[in-house]
Structures are given as C-alpha cells and as structure tokens.
C-alpha cells in the first residue's frame, strides 16, 4: 500500500497540522512537488510559511499533530534532519545560524561527505568549492571564514545558496532567500538556482516578492493564510498579489485581517 500513499510524487504532504509548543500553526496542508517543478508559496507575515519549511526539515522545536509527509517514497515524519538531508532535502533558512570557530570549507566538506556518503579529498573538494563560489561571485576568502559568523544579511543568503549548490539536493526549499539581497545578488542567486535545476530536482520557494519568481518561473503559486493554503494558481497569482495585496483573498476565504 505504501507506494500509493505518496501518489508517486517526490514530495507529498497530506493533511499536515502542527505547531510550536502549545500553539497550533499549520491547520491542514496538502501539497505535492515533483522533480523539474518550481512551486512558490506566498502569504502574509506569520501565516506559517517558515513553520512549514521547518517541519518539513525536522526542526525539533516544532511538532506535528496530524498528517504525513512523504519524500521520495519515505515517510518523513519521524526522520532526523540529517536523514532527511541524506534523502536529498535541503532548506535554505530564512535566518541561518552562525557557528563560531567552524570554517566554511571544513564544514561544507563534512556536509558533502555525509550527504553524498563519500569521502572526497581536501584538494578535490577545494576545487569543487572554488567553482561553486565563482558561480555565486563569492570571494574566495569566504571559504576560510567561520560559518555565517559576522556575515551580512545578504552574505548569509549567499552562503545558503553555496551550501545548496554543494549538496545538490533533490528538493530545495528556499525560505525568503530573496529577502535582503541587493538587485545584483538577487540575480546571481536566482541564476545559481536555475543552473542547479534539473528534471530530477524540485524547488519550493517561499517569498514575498514577485521579482525572484520572474527568474525562477514557477509552475504553481500558492497563497498561505493562517496555516492553510487557500489559493492555488500560476505565475499570474503572484502578479495579482503584488498589485492588490492580500485583502481580496482574506475576503474571499472569509478571514478577518
């Protein structure tokens, strides 16, 4: 039976409810993503977008009260974050942590070896890393800096993209990666995502702005409100939001501000 539970989709989220401590945040999410597709979630502040991303990645601060998440045929609900990473799931954080004393290159090599179940040599990895950093127009000095420590907001986002490029996930969840980026950085980041994209890779992008979507060309756009996906459409939905804001959708689904 298990192969039917995920309907053959790479990511299948069914009836997901959950939250943090005693606070319910997600009130029933259904979502499926397949390789080669780009999905975008938009929604006002506090609607639960990051909560969804965190529950998907297995942040222990959050809990699931109902529902299932399947990824590449595996039930994610009880898996540790590192197991999810090894399955090919990647989350670019809205607010990445700083890890003092841990150099980017050493950390990335450990992460690479762990996700790919490889043991690449220092020299070989350094070359690979250099290439990926060039793509992101990152100065090579970042390789020896401590992970995100003292990085500017935009540099942190680029660091997330570098990590994604190195780990080559099957599904990348980008939680407001575009926020805080200057215009050039936004283009560079978007191009790096497009470069990585392939028919096997899915992208789930969380954003407030249409601009990044013009680069990523989503197949589906969703609107999230108070822990539910209340509207589904194509790129035109993002345009509509940019024009009109969220009031119309609140009215449509009968929710107050």
């Amino acid at each position: 039976m298990s192969d039917t539970k995920h309907n053959g989709n790479m990511l299948e989220i069914k009836g997901l409810k959950g939250g943090v401590e005693d606070t319910p945040i997600l009130r029933g999410i259904d979502l499926s993503v397949n390789g080669g597709e780009v999905h975008a979630i938009m929604g006002p502040n506090g609607s639960g977008k990051s909560t969804l991303a965190n529950i998907l990645m297995g942040n222990p601060r959050f809990h699931i009260s109902e529902g299932e998440m399947y990824f590449r045929g595996e039930l994610l609900n009880e898996l540790e974050p590192d197991e999810r990473a090894r399955l090919g799931l990647f989350l670019a954080f809205q607010y990445p942590s700083e890890i003092p004393g841990v150099s980017m290159d050493k950390f990335l090599r450990d992460a690479y070896n762990s996700v790919k179940q490889d043991s690449v040599s220092v020299g070989k990895f350094a070359k690979k890393l250099r290439k990926k950093m060039d793509d992101l127009e990152m100065d090579e000095s970042f390789a020896s800096r401590y992970l995100n420590e003292g990085f500017s907001g935009g540099e942190k986002k680029r660091s997330e993209m570098l990590q994604m490029a190195v780990l080559e996930p099957k599904l990348a969840v980008l939680d407001e990666t575009d926020s805080g980026l200057d215009i050039d950085a936004l283009r560079i980041v978007a191009e790096s995502v497009n470069k990585l994209k392939n028919p096997e890779m899915g992208v789930l992008v969380i954003t407030h702005y249409q601009r990044i979507l013009q680069y990523l060309e989503p197949d589906y756009v969703y609107i999230m409100l108070q822990g539910r996906i209340v509207e589904k459409g194509g790129p035109e939905l993002a345009e509509k939001l940019e024009d009109k804001g969220y009031d119309w959708i609140r009215e449509k689904v009968g929710l107050e501000g």
Binding site: D82, L91, P96, S97, I99
Partner: peptide, 20 residues
C-alpha cells in the same frame, strides 16, 4: 538543527560546535 539539516549526524554536529 542547522548543522543536522546539512547532513551531519547529531554526534558530528555536536562535535563540530565543540571544536568550533
């Protein structure tokens, strides 16, 4: 969580933080 989301096991992640 951040380190584990990048594939490090809990042990590796703790060790990484301690060595850092």
């Amino acid at each position: 969580f951040y380190l584990m989301s990048r594939g490090l096991t809990e042990e590796q992640a703790k060790r990484t933080i301690v060595h850092g």
